[in-house]
Design a protein around this nucleic acid. Structure first.
Lengths: 236, 236
DNA sequence: TGGGACAGATGGTCTGACCATCAAACCAAA
DNA sequence: TTTGGTTTGATGGTCAGACCATCTGTCCCA
C-alpha cells in the first residue's frame, strides 16, 4: 500500500504556482506588468487578501515589485540592492562566518579566473577606478569599504555568469549582516590598508593581463590574508 | 545639493524588520513559537492582513512555518525539501543552463574535495547505498534519478558546509525546473548509464579513501561528461 | 481506564471599505 | 509653447470584521 503525502495547498501558494508556470512558459518576462490585484481577484476567484499574500512573498524574494498607483511588475534588474532573504536564513545557522568565508574562497577564486578570461575593456576600466579609490583613501572608512566591495562585485560581473554574481552578492550581504550583528570590526591600521591595496593591485594586474592562473593565485593570497585578519579578530 | 531617496516602508516590511532584529539578538531561535497573529495584531497595532503578508513572505523563503490550529514557528530544520525561491529568480535569466552548469562545476569540484577530507563513516555508508541503487537500477528511471541526486546531495552534506549545501540545492532545483521546462531529456541509453555508474564509483572510491585531489579530478571528469551530454541534447 | 464531546485558540480565507499614490488628460496662466 | 495646477480613474496599501477548519487540552461518562 502506498500513500501520498497530503499537501496543504494554501491559496497564496497556488497563486504563486500559477505565476511560476507563466514564467516557465515565457509568458511573463522581465519588466512585464502583472494584472491588477482586483483583476486577478476576478480571474482567479479568490480574495484580494490572498493575492496580496502571494505578492508580498514574491516581492520579498525580489521577483516582483509593487508600485502604488501603477501596478505590479516583474523586476527587470536584479543588480540593484534589494534585501536578500538568503542572509536572513543564514543567520540562524551556527558557524556562519566560517562557512561563508570558506564558500567565498571556493567561489571567488574560480570567479576571478573566469573574469580574467572574459573581462571587457569597460569592466577593466571600472575596476581601475575602484583601485584608484582604494589607493587615494586614507583609512578604512565608508568610501574605501564601498570601493573594496565594488571591486569584488565587478570581478563577479566580469565573470559573465549572472548566477555566480547573484551568489557572490548573497554571501557578501550575509557577511555584512553577520559583521554588523557580532559588532566585529576589521582592523583599520595603516599597514593593513596598504597591504589590502597592494593585494588588490596584484589581482587587478593579473586580471588586466588576462592571466587566469595568476589572478586566481593572487585572489587566494588575498583571501588568506582576510581570513587571518578575521580569525585574529575573533580570538581577540 | 543632495537628496536622499525616500523609502517606502510598507507595514509588512516593518514587521519583518522587527522579526529580523529579534533573530539578531537571539531572542528568536530555531523552533521557537511566534506570538499568534491576533496577539501580534494587538502588540504591533496593525491589522491581521499585514501580519499575514509578512508571514507569507517569511514562509516563502523558508524561515517560518505556520500550522493551522497550532501557531507559527521558526523552522528548525532547513534540510528538508521546501520550495527554494532562488530557483524561481534564476529562471528569469538567459543562458541559465550554461551558467548553472558552470557554477555547479565550480562548486561541486571543491565540494567533493572538502567532502573527501571531512566525510564521516555514516555519510560514506549512505553514499555507498546510493551507489548500489545506481548499479542495480536497469535504466534511467525515476529511482536512479533520485539515487543520482541523493549521491550528490550527500557529498554536499559531507562537505560540512551548510551554506554550500544550500547553494547546491538551489542549483539542482533550478536545473530540474529548467530541464522540465525545456522538456530536455537526458539520454537513457545503456552505455550512458553504465558510464554514469562507473564515474560515480570512481568519485566515491576517492572520497572513501579521503583523497581530495583524486576526488576532485573524478568529479571534474564526471561533469565534463554530463556537460557533453547536455550540449549534445541542445544541439540535437 | 479509555474514548468521545466540547470549548478555546489558532491559522486560512473572504468581504467590503477607505486611504495614498500615480498616470493621463485637461485646463489655465505666463 | 511652456509650465504648473486640477480632475479623474485605476492601482496598491491598510484595516476591521466575519466565518471556517484544525489542533490542543479538558472534562465527563461508560
Amino acid at each position: 500500500m502506498e500513500f501520498k503525502q497530503i499537501k496543504n495547498n494554501k491559496v497564496y501558494e497556488q497563486i504563486i504556482e500559477q505565476i511560476r508556470e507563466l514564467i516557465y512558459e515565457g509568458e511573463l518576462k522581465k519588466g512585464d506588468k502583472l494584472p491588477s490585484e482586483r483583476q486577478l481577484k476576478k480571474d482567479l476567484g479568490v480574495s484580494r487578501a490572498s493575492i496580496r499574500e502571494a505578492f508580498s512573498a514574491l516581492e520579498m524574494i525580489g521577483l516582483i515589485e509593487s508600485r502604488p498607483g501603477e501596478g505590479t511588475f516583474i523586476r527587470d534588474s536584479f543588480d540593484e540592492d534589494f534585501f536578500n532573504p538568503l542572509s536572513l536564513i543564514l543567520l540562524l545557522n551556527d558557524n556562519v562566518a566560517e562557512e561563508l568565508l570558506e564558500l567565498r574562497r571556493v567561489l571567488e577564486i574560480d570567479c576571478v579566473k573566469l573574469a580574467a578570461e572574459r573581462a571587457t575593456a569597460a569592466e577593466i576600466e571600472e575596476m581601475q577606478s575602484y583601485i584608484d579609490d582604494l589607493l587615494s583613501s586614507s583609512g578604512y572608512e565608508e568610501e574605501s569599504i564601498k570601493a573594496d566591495k565594488m571591486f569584488h562585485y565587478t570581478i563577479a560581473q566580469a565573470s559573465g555568469n549572472k548566477v555566480l554574481l547573484f551568489f557572490m552578492r548573497s554571501i557578501s550581504e550575509a557577511m555584512d549582516f553577520h559583521i554588523k550583528n557580532t559588532r566585529t570590526k576589521l582592523v583599520s591600521k595603516k599597514e593593513t590598508m596598504s597591504e589590502f591595496a597592494e593585494q588588490h593591485q596584484q589581482i587587478f594586474k593579473a586580471l588586466k593581463n588576462h592571466d587566469p592562473e595568476k589572478a586566481g593565485a593572487e585572489m587566494r593570497n588575498h583571501l588568506d590574508y582576510v581570513e587571518k585578519l578575521i580569525n585574529k579578530e575573533i580570538e581577540g
